[in-house]
């Protein structure tokens, strides 16, 4: 029987707090991508007109088509390669990018649970915007629960646009045990 340690947190792990990944950079957001994303998000209903009807969107406070707040500009060849099969050509390099973005603390236990996520939205994403995403490890702490000692590591992803404006922060609470 494996005994549970009194703590998982080591000096090496503490030193890892504040580690930041290189930026992931999206291609410019296009009107068609916004329309398709909205169709998928709202299926089987027609999405709100402001996401696909240019004339209507001009009458709103946005004065143009804007992206839904949860829109993902990094899909297809830019990121997230570790969550499904990928073409061989991009597999190796994308895997490296994604593995860096996991920021799993060194020496942490292997078993994983997703704790939750918080997205805070700031500047709206518009057609032509280029979004950069940087992930950092912001917090490490432990709790004891029904799974025994659990290590929580908190990541914060910050999206900025081409003007350096903050678009959103995504905080994710990850559990290792």
């Amino acid at each position: 029987m494996t005994s549970t340690p009194e703590t998982y947190i080591t000096d090496e792990m503490r030193a890892y707090i504040g580690t930041e990944t290189p930026p992931l950079v999206s291609p410019p957001i296009s009107q068609s991508e916004i329309r398709r994303f909205a169709m998928a998000a709202y299926w089987p209903e027609v999405p709100p007109r402001r996401f696909w009807d240019e004339d209507y969107a001009k009458t709103t406070r946005w004065e143009a088509i804007v992206a839904p707040a949860e829109y993902n500009p990094f899909a297809w060849m830019i990121g997230r390669a570790n969550i499904g099969p990928q073409p061989d050509r991009i597999d190796a390099e994308q895997e490296e990018i994604e593995s860096k973005r996991e920021l799993r603390p060194p020496g942490a236990p292997e078993r994983y649970l997703f704790g939750g996520t918080t997205a805070e939205h700031f500047v709206t994403m518009r057609i032509g915007d280029v979004i950069s995403s940087v992930v950092s490890l912001v917090e490490l702490y432990e709790r004891t629960g029904r799974l025994g000692l659990m290590l929580f590591y908190v990541l914060e992803e910050r999206w900025t646009n081409q003007n350096g404006e903050l678009v959103q922060t995504i905080r994710s609470d990850n559990i290792l045990y």
């Binding site: 998000a41 709202y42 709100p48 007109r49 402001r50 709103t60 406070r61 839904p68 707040a69 949860e70 997703f114 704790g115 939750g116 996520t117 918080t118 997205a119 805070e120 939205h121 709206t124």
Partner: peptide, 26 residues
Amino acid sequence: RFSYLHSLLRQFAGDDGDVVLVRVQM
């Protein structure tokens, strides 16, 4: 599901409102 909750809030906020924050546990 995270997107569905954004849609819930957008439906309430209307076209001139905006979603500011969504926090969830799965």
